[in-house]
C-alpha cells in the first residue's frame, strides 16, 4: 500500500497537481499579505474571488476573449475591495463585518447577478468556449526536460503570474516607497501619520492591490481550473489563504511556502482517496491536519529560538 503511495508521490503528475492546487490559494494568500501589511484584515477574500470568478466568465463570454475576462475579473476584484474600503475606512464599519458582508454577497448575490445577466441559475457550463479559458503555456527548453518539464511546464498562464507575483509583491513591499508606506501604516499608523503619510490613502491602495490579487485568483478558478462558474465554486480557498498568510508570517515568500504545503497535502489526499482502506472523511482532513502540524512545528522552532536568545542573554 505504501509502495503504491510512494510511486504516486514520485510521479510527475503529483508535482503538477501540487502547483495547480496551490495557484488559486497563492493569489489569495498574497492578497491577504498585502492587506495585512497595511494593517487591514481582508476577510472578504472568499467573496471577492467568487464575484470575480463570475465576472471573469461573463466578460470573457461577452467578448469571447480570455484576456478581457481576466482584466474584468481583476477590475471587479478591485471594485469589491473598494466597496469594502469605503465601508470600513470611510464609514468606519468594522472591517471584519464588511468582509463578512462581501462573503455573503459572494455566496448569494452572485446567483442573482448570474441570473440577471444570463438567465442561468446554477452554473455557466453551457457558456464555455475554448477562447474563454486562460491558455496553458509550455515553457521552451524546460518542457523538454523529463519529469521537470512535466511538473513545471504546461500550466495556465495565471499560474506563472501567481508565482511571479510573489517576487513582485516582495519587491513592492520592500523596495518601493509605496511598500514602505504600507508597512509603516501597518506597523504603527500614528507614527506614519505623524511623518505625513496618508494612512487612509495607503490603506485604500493596499486593499485595491489585495482585491486585484483575489480577482486573479477568482479568474483562475472559473477560467482555468473549473472551466465554468458555479455556486460556491471557491469552496473555502479564500479562507485557507488567510491561514496560509498567517502561517507564512505575513511575508510573500512564507505565504507561498505555506500555500505549497497546503497544495502538497491536498494532492496527497487526492491520491490517497483512490487507495484501499482510507475513509474519504479521514482523507479530506489531511490538508487541515498538515496545516496544524506545520503551525505547531513553526511555533516550536520559534519558541526554541526565543529560548536560545534568552539563554544567551543571561
Amino acid at each position: 500500500m505504501f509502495e503504491q503511495l510512494i510511486d504516486m508521490i514520485f510521479s510527475a503528475s503529483f508535482g503538477y497537481s501540487i502547483i495547480r492546487i496551490t495557484s488559486p490559494i497563492l493569489f489569495a494568500a498574497l492578497a491577504a499579505v498585502v492587506a495585512e501589511k497595511a494593517g487591514v484584515v481582508n476577510i472578504g477574500l472568499e467573496g471577492t474571488m467568487m464575484i470575480s470568478a463570475l465576472f471573469g466568465v461573463l466578460f470573457a463570454y461577452w467578448t469571447n476573449s480570455w484576456i478581457i475576462g481576466v482584466i474584468g475579473a481583476t477590475a471587479i476584484g478591485i471594485l469589491v475591495a473598494m466597496i469594502m474600503a469605503i465601508f470600513a475606512l470611510k464609514l468606519k464599519t468594522d472591517i471584519i463585518l464588511a468582509g463578512i458582508a462581501v462573503n455573503l454577497l459572494g455566496g448569494g448575490g452572485t446567483v442573482f447577478l448570474l441570473y440577471l445577466f444570463t438567465g442561468l441559475k446554477g452554473n455557466t457550463a453551457s457558456l464555455t468556449t475554448p477562447n474563454m479559458l486562460t491558455p496553458k503555456v509550455d515553457i521552451p527548453i524546460i518542457q523538454n526536460i523529463p519529469v521537470i518539464g512535466q511538473i513545471f511546464s504546461g500550466h495556465s498562464i495565471l499560474t506563472y503570474v501567481a508565482f511571479l507575483l510573489v517576487i513582485l509583491v516582495w519587491i513592492m513591499l520592500y523596495k518601493t516607497a509605496m511598500g514602505l508606506r504600507i508597512r509603516a501604516v501597518g506597523e504603527n499608523s500614528h507614527a506614519a501619520d505623524s511623518v505625513g503619510v496618508s494612512v487612509l490613502r495607503t490603506q485604500y491602495v493596499a486593499l485595491a492591490i489585495s482585491g486585484a490579487l483575489a480577482g486573479l485568483g477568482g479568474a483562475y478558478m472559473s477560467m482555468y481550473y473549473s472551466q465554468s462558474w458555479n455556486i460556491g465554486i471557491v469552496a473555502g480557498r479564500g479562507f485557507i489563504a488567510l491561514a496560509a498568510q498567517a502561517m507564512g508570517q505575513g511575508e510573500p515568500v512564507g505565504a507561498m511556502l505555506s500555500s505549497l504545503l497546503f497544495g502538497f497535502a491536498s494532492a496527497l489526499g487526492n491520491k490517497m482517496e483512490g487507495m484501499q482502506g482510507f475513509s474519504s472523511y479521514l482523507v479530506a482532513s489531511i490538508p487541515y491536519a498538515v496545516t496544524i502540524i506545520g503551525l505547531v512545528i513553526y511555533a516550536m522552532s520559534t519558541l526554541k529560538k526565543v529560548k536560545r536568545f534568552k539563554d544567551n542573554d543571561k
Binding site: S13, M221, S226, N270
Partner: peptide, 15 residues
Amino acid sequence: NSYVDPAKAKELAES
C-alpha cells in the same frame, strides 16, 4: 466531500 467544488473533483478524476 462537497457538491460545489468541481476543481477538487477534477483533481480526483485526473488522478
